[in-house]
């Protein structure tokens, strides 16, 4: 692997032009992500957290400010940034193996490609399902395939857009554990967008809380707990409550920020 690269977001603004005028989605977003860090971004739906991820992915253009990846502004999607969405977005006409191979970089020798694909099938625990079609697999297995597809090109950053949002609670917990294993094994930077507070605290080195419309980071919490984390420990619950309060209790009393 090449040397780790840092991601830097500076005073980012994103708005969409609508007939009724400009709609601000994100304002004044600043963030520096260290190589190998696991960042969780929590926010309510529609707060712009997915848009932020799409901007980092290069799928959309920033309105103001900039996103620097390895000192260069991001303009296009690239294999150095893998993305996994809430829907697996697997191609139904490809087998699991072919779907994962589709993520490979060009100009790989066939044997090399096969090896990489095989390694990643093993990594996400799908041995034996190589020849299956996506519709034959469960939602969790489909997401594993999508993760493998995003990883085969050996990206520097893995962007996860509510990847477990559509899974049942038990599968979700299992997948969280696995994404952690993958992160530790691959030494990759991960940015996870979620609305699940528990998931954000369980996974992230830092949890960024995003406010609503226009979205901006209103709070950053580091999670100083050693992994594997116990979801029922007092420290975990205290952190969880702190974030929970950001969204709920204070609205009732009318206050917004500290």
């Amino acid at each position: 692997m090449t040397k780790p690269m840092s991601l830097k977001i500076e005073n980012l603004t994103k708005h969409y032009s609508l007939p009724q005028g400009d709609l601000a989605v994100l304002t004044g977003v600043d963030l520096t992500v260290q190589p190998g860090e696991f960042i969780s971004i929590v926010g309510a739906s529609g707060c712009g957290k997915s848009t932020l991820l799409r901007l980092i992915g290069g799928l959309e253009q920033v309105s103001e400010g900039r996103i620097l990846f390895d000192e260069t502004p991001i303009q296009n999607p690239g294999l150095d940034r893998g993305i996994v969405f809430q829907e697996s977005r697997l191609f139904p006409w490809f087998t699991i193996e072919e779907n994962i191979a589709f993520g490979c970089r060009k100009n790989l020798v066939e044997s090399e490609k096969q090896q990489i694909v095989q390694d990643h099938i093993k990594l996400v625990g799908l041995l034996g399902f190589e020849k299956a079609y996506p519709h034959q697999l469960s939602g969790g297995m489909q997401q594993r395939t999508a993760i493998a597809r995003a990883l085969v090109s050996r990206p520097q950053i893995l962007l996860l857009d509510e990847p477990f949002g559509a899974l049942d609670a038990l599968t979700r917990i299992q997948m969280q554990q696995e994404i952690l294993n993958i992160w530790q094994k691959e030494k990759i930077t991960v940015i996870l967008v979620t609305h699940d507070i528990d998931e954000a605290v369980f996974l992230g080195d830092r949890v960024l809380v995003m406010s609503n419309r226009p979205g901006t980071f209103k709070k950053t919490l580091s999670v100083p707990l050693a992994r594997p984390r116990d979801r029922n420990s007092a420290a975990f619950l205290a952190l969880r409550k702190k974030i929970y309060d950001e969204f709920f209790s204070k609205k009732k009393t009318g206050g917004r920020s500290r």
Binding site: L79, F94, K106
Partner: peptide, 27 residues
């Protein structure tokens, strides 16, 4: 369009896009 976006993310060229994504989907 979600499939087209995946092909964009994975930096696929136009020929691959046509033969591996658009045509199978239109089949």
């Amino acid at each position: 369009p979600k499939y087209l976006e995946v092909a964009r993310i994975l930096e696929k060229d136009r020929v691959t896009l046509l033969t591996k994504v658009i045509i199978p989907s239109a089949l």
